Simulated scan of single mutants.
Amino acid sequence: MSERNSTKEDNIVKKTSKTASDLVNKSADTANDIVKSVSGEGGLVGKAADASTDFVKNVSKTGNKVVGKSVDTASNVFKGATKKVFGKKKDKDKE
C-alpha cells in the first residue's frame, strides 16, 4: 500500500467517524426537542434531557477525537516502518 493510499484510508476512517458523531449529535438534539415539546421547556424533565443530550454529545466528541488520534498514530507508525524498510540506504563509503 502506498503512502497516498494510506492517507486516503485515514481520511475515510476520520470522515466516517465524524459523520457518525454528527449523526449521534443530531439524534440527541432531536430526541431532546421531542422530550421538551412533550414535557415543557423549563421543568425537571427538560433539564434532565438537556444534561443527557450534553453528555451524549461530549462522549461522541471524545470518541471522534480518539479515533482521529488513533488513525494519526497508526499512519505515522506505518509511514515510519515503510521508510525504514523501503527507504534508500546510505552508502557508508561516501560519508
Rank of each mutant, 00 (worst) to 15 (best):
G43P: 12
G46I: 09
D91F: 03
L44W: 09
S52R: 05
I34R: 15
K57S: 03
V67P: 01
N64R: 07
I34E: 15
K61Y: 09
A51V: 02
K83N: 03
S70D: 09
T30E: 15
G87T: 02
S17Q: 10
K79Y: 10
T53C: 02
S17F: 09
S37D: 15
S70M: 06
K79G: 05
T7W: 03
D50H: 05
A28P: 08
N25H: 13
T19C: 01
V77T: 10
K88T: 00
I12Y: 09
L23Q: 11
E9N: 01
V66H: 04
A81M: 07
K88C: 00
L23F: 14
I34S: 13
D91M: 04
V13W: 09
D29P: 03
S60E: 04
V77L: 10
V35Y: 14
T19E: 07
F55C: 00
G40L: 05
K88M: 00
T82E: 10
I12V: 07
V77D: 11
V38P: 07
F55V: 03
A51C: 00
T19V: 06
N58A: 08
L44T: 15
G43T: 10
K89P: 01
G40N: 14
T16D: 08
K61R: 06
T73P: 00
A49S: 15
N58K: 13
F55Q: 05
D72A: 03
D22I: 09
V85G: 00
G46V: 08
K61A: 14
V38A: 11
D72F: 03
K18A: 12
E9Q: 10
S75N: 10
N11Q: 12
V66I: 11
S70K: 02
A49C: 07
S6A: 12
G42N: 15
G40P: 11
F86C: 00
K88P: 00
V56Y: 08
G80F: 08
I34T: 15
K88Y: 02
S27L: 11
S17G: 15
V38T: 12
K61P: 06
S39T: 09
K89S: 06
D54V: 04
T30D: 12
K26M: 14
K47W: 13
A81W: 08
T53Q: 14
K47H: 13
V35W: 14
N76I: 01
S37P: 11
D50N: 06
K61G: 11
N76P: 04
G42R: 12
F86N: 03
T82W: 07
V45F: 14
N58T: 13
V35D: 14
D22E: 15
G63N: 13
S70Q: 04
L44Q: 12
I12T: 08
N64M: 01
V45D: 14
T53G: 01
N11W: 05
D22M: 08
F86D: 04
N58V: 07
S52Y: 07
V13R: 05
